[in-house]
């Protein structure tokens, strides 16, 4: 792996947002992770990618890393808040089983992007993670660098209602925050995206500011709620249908042949729910029941997954 100093200026993580991403990818590729591309659906967090949610289940080894664009419709601020976005990037690493030196691996990845632990105050601060929609929980920390939360670190104990055996370790880097930190920038839109200067420089704002404005309007004001309610219902139905259709009695054990397509519909339902929530058309009491409905889908998908080739014992 090239050292930081051997990188051309425009690729260096403290100069370039994409340089930061590429450095993390190289680092985890070097460790032996498969480097995946973002999942091609709208998700609220990198955890929703089947490479985490489903692959965290079952006994097989799995080491993967990827960037995941994440959508949180409620967090839109019309491009006016310096660090809140309805669309942002997470860098996600999943290591199953969690290696015993996972904390050291994480700290070395920070060093790779220029966070020197002799100079900066890096801390692991208690943060238990729970995703009610995914039926998942784990214990871990927020990782602080000089008082700023730059990552989440979780040992998954349960995902989609299934006990993790073995346990996977999940690292989630908040890329914009981390980049703001290493670039020394106070407003996300001022991040240097491509590491070039002068006329060639492209900022995060150049790429995403208009999108933030448009999607904020969409998420809060315009999104078609009648359609969304219908989409939720359809996704829920489709998920159940595919799950039911996927079961086979192969040999002496039950197996499932459609866990992934079914899970796509669960992701879909979850995102549609987030949009409806942002539109403010779901009351407090209804909210709980929607979350529960998505959780039921996630659990059924998890149950199906552990009966697939990738999800079960060899």
């Amino acid at each position: 792996m090239p050292t930081m100093d051997s990188l051309p200026a425009h690729m260096r993580p403290e100069r370039s947002f994409q340089g930061l991403i590429l450095t993390l990818q190289r680092y985890w590729a070097d460790y032996g992770c498969v480097i995946l591309q973002p999942y091609d659906m709208e998700v609220g967090a990198g955890t929703f990618h089947p490479a985490t949610t489903l692959r965290a289940l079952g006994p097989k080894r799995w080491n993967a890393a990827y960037v995941q664009p994440s959508r949180r419709p409620k967090d839109g601020r019309y491009g006016e808040n310096p660090n809140r976005l309805q669309h942002y990037y997470q860098f996600q690493v999943i290591l199953k089983p969690s290696p015993s030196d996972i904390q050291e691996l994480y700290l070395k990845s920070l060093a790779a992007i220029g966070v020197d632990s002799a100079l900066h105050d890096i801390r692991f601060v208690e943060d238990d993670w729970e995703s009610p929609t995914l039926g998942a929980w784990g214990l871990g920390w927020e990782c602080w660098c000089d008082g700023m939360e730059v990552s989440q670190f979780t040992y998954f104990q349960q995902v989609a209602g299934v006990e993790c055996a073995p346990v996977a370790g999940e690292l989630t880097y908040g890329l914009e925050r981390l980049a703001m930190y290493v670039q020394g920038v106070d407003r996300v839109y001022d991040l240097n995206f491509n590491g070039r200067e002068g006329d060639e420089k492209v900022t995060y704002g150049d790429v995403f500011l208009q999108a933030e404005q448009e999607y904020s309007r969409h998420n809060f004001e315009i999104a078609d709620t009648a359609m969304l309610f219908e989409q939720f219902r359809m996704a829920e139905e489709a998920c159940k249908k595919y799950l039911a259709a996927g079961w086979r009695n192969g040999g002496n054990q039950r197996e499932h042949l459609m866990a992934l397509p079914a899970y796509d519909q669960c992701i879909k339902a979850s995102h549609v729910f987030n949009l409806l929530d942002a539109r403010g058309v779901i009351s407090v009491t209804e909210r709980q029941s929607y979350i529960l409905r998505v959780r039921e889908l996630a659990k059924a998908c998890g149950e199906a997954w552990v009966h697939t080739e990738a999800g079960r014992a060899a």
Binding site: P59, P97, Y155, C164, P166, V167
Partner: peptide, 8 residues
């Protein structure tokens, strides 16, 4: 919590 290889 459980962790690592042995957690299985």
């Amino acid at each position: 919590m459980r962790w690592g290889e042995r957690s299985a």
